[in-house]
Design a protein around this nucleic acid. Sequence first.
DNA 1: TACCCGTGGGT
DNA 2: TACCCAAGGGT
Length: 354
Amino acid sequence: MSELSDLSARLLAWYDRHHRSMPWRVAPPDRALGERPDPYRVWMSEVMLQQTTVAAVRDYFRRFTDRWPRVTDLAAAEDADVMAEWAGLGYYARARNLLKCARVVAEAHDGRFPDSEEGLRALPGVGPYTAAAVAAIAFDRPATVVDGNVERVITRLRRIETPLPAAKPEIGRRAAELTPADRPGDYAQAIMDLGATICTPRNPACALCPWSEDCAARAAGDATSFPRKAPKQAKPVRQGTVWIVRRSDGAILLEDRPASGLLGGMLGFPTSGWDGSALPAPLPADWESLGEVQHTFTHFQLQLTVLWAESDAPPDRGRYIPAADFAPGALPTVMRKAWSQAAATLRPVSSAKP
DNA sequence: TACCCGTGGGT
DNA sequence: TACCCAAGGGT
């Protein structure tokens, strides 16, 4: 047995004992009996898991698959319903592409996902990682997944000194040579489980690792220093204003955000903009300041002043949502924070349903 | 290539 | 507290 196939065989043996259980996963024993994961559920989980923890995804996955059990169900959904269901999970372009992709699969592929890496890669929101993951996990194709876990495991195993992202091609080659022809789907999940539970960023459990004797970084005594990374930029602080308006009948003024860009396609309270743009208030009013909320986005920090007014004046932008239909849970987190600030300050506001 | 794009939990 | 970072993709 070659060194490479010995490594993959030991990882698969480790996975058989220590695999994590997940709602979208078929465990090795069931797999051996011929059970196959549903490509729709595999794809859904992979999109949700992009840059997102398993713990955060579980409930969203359950709600989405309960509400839309098949890709054709999702394809027929209203855009606003999908965006509202995604609210709070972040990276909202994923939700827009999720719906686009479901409609392409439903209409152009007769409701069945492509079973090859190339075919999957052509779908909206499906990049190199997700195409490989669905091909391997759902269709047992010998595709090589390279996510953050794999980058960490491989740079440690092979002690790759090149910093990310320049190291990606080399990582890809080193990962591909380990991918076995037998059980590639389980192998893909195994190497990611290894990275998530054993070969962790801070305190790796090398004593429990099936590859510890093979790990070049561990042999050198500095596993945690891999992967090498270029230093990060500091996040600038931006400021803005959010206006919360309640009409005398209790309706709340909301605005549909532009389809692309930050929080694209989501519902929110009207804001001044905080990227250099400076929009005026949605209507003239005697604004009351409710203080400030802080929120950190991927690439900047936001200090948002919350202004409040009760008014029956017609707004220049946005639309009123009846009190009975207003659900803060359908809003992105920064908007929920602004609402919570208002609700904490103004008792009558909090009478709307949570 | 480099930047844009959320959020919550861990240390 | 102030970071880090998580099953990345689009442009």
